[in-house]
Design a protein around this nucleic acid. Structure first.
Lengths: 67, 67
DNA sequence: ACATTATATAATGTACACATTAGATAATGA
DNA sequence: TCATTATCTAATGTGTACATTATATAATGT
């Protein structure tokens, strides 16, 4: 189970930097999330990512949860 | 943004205790998750909850993400 | 009676998400 | 040439998810 942030960014024609600025996380921790080096995530950050990327948690959690 | 675990358990006719046993978390931490006293969740626990409850993350994250 | 289900509280410890500060390289555009 | 975009690394600190151990109460079934 990993996050598909890069794939969604690509679909939207946006960069990691753009999302990083929108989110307001430190770049270090943002990078870990995007590169799936984290084992958990704060609900507020999950929600912020979904809001900014205009997607749902299911969109973020790879094939596993896609209908 | 909070988890709707109790609602889904009710729909399925299952108890918290049943899910607690399936999950294998400590009861203390399990209770905090169910009662939304946590601010983050491990991906492995989110996945386990979805697998056991036969639902997706969108089902767990309240109205906000329901289509 | 006793085991199991179904819930609850409290104390202590570890691992890790995320913050903060401080850098760095390279491309593009004004 | 200089700001901004777009990426990267390293050190140190705080808050908190989750583990562990030890309890407790009450209902239900055997």
């Amino acid at each position: 189970m990993h996050l598909r942030i890069d794939e969604i960014l690509k679909q939207k024609g946006k960069t990691r930097y753009w999302l990083y600025i929108q989110l307001g996380l430190s770049y270090q921790n943002f990078k870990k999330i995007v590169e799936n080096e984290t084992k958990a995530i704060k609900f507020e950050n999950l929600k912020a990512i979904c809001d900014i990327l205009e997607c749902t948690p299911n969109d973020l959690f790879e094939e596993y949860y896609k209908k």
